[in-house]
Design a protein around this nucleic acid. Sequence first.
DNA 1: ACCTATTTGTCCGTATGTATG
DNA 2: CCATACATACGGACAAATAGG
Lengths: 113, 113
Amino acid sequence: MLIRIDPGSDQPIYLQIAKSIETQIEGGALRAGERLPSARSLSASLGINMHTVLKAYAELQDRSLVEMRRGRGGVVVSETTGIDVMARELVGTAKRRGMTQDEVQRLIWDAWR
Amino acid sequence: MLIRIDPGSDQPIYLQIAKSIETQIEGGALRAGERLPSARSLSASLGINMHTVLKAYAELQDRSLVEMRRGRGGVVVSETTGIDVMARELVGTAKRRGMTQDEVQRLIWDAWR
DNA sequence: ACCTATTTGTCCGTATGTATG
DNA sequence: CCATACATACGGACAAATAGG
């Protein structure tokens, strides 16, 4: 787990960590099922606070890239599962707002370009 | 801004706050453009920590219900803008994973049931 | 144009709870 | 039972953006 931190960057530390891990996942260096280092160990090796690492992990969880669980830690999820969750959330809010299926499809079509 | 907190609930405080505000937005009690109370004032009136309120606000921001900015505070977003962002994020990750437009449409269709 | 107060953003530290192995 | 690890909540500090006088 190779993660570099630039304290003088304009980007916050937790985003630097999240982005670093994200690129490793997208690049194939981290594959589905692999575990992330524990927040404590990573924070200790980086010399930062544990909460900062946890915030980065939460960011990755929000994007459905990793799955966090108490007592176990974080694991990289299958590449195909994440987008399903996003689709379900999108459909859920669309339904709550009374949108039709056609309107959602048009939304997707507009967002594509 | 009427928000009740149940300390003995199984749900965390920040989710109770987020859900309470969400229902007020959905119900029309909070309309687009209205400001949320500052995290400090709300936390003081509830007798809880400011960070807990900020976490609730961040949750609402993730769902594109409110927009947070430094120095200004949080304002309720127009009801129609939120789902556009979700659609763009969905399309963005779909493109990064090399999915076609048809596959995304099928994903939406499957998620609709 | 300047200054000041307000407000969120980030980070740190600590403590407690709870699920996992 | 016990060690590990995240989840939540508290408190404090400083930075940065905003609004208003």
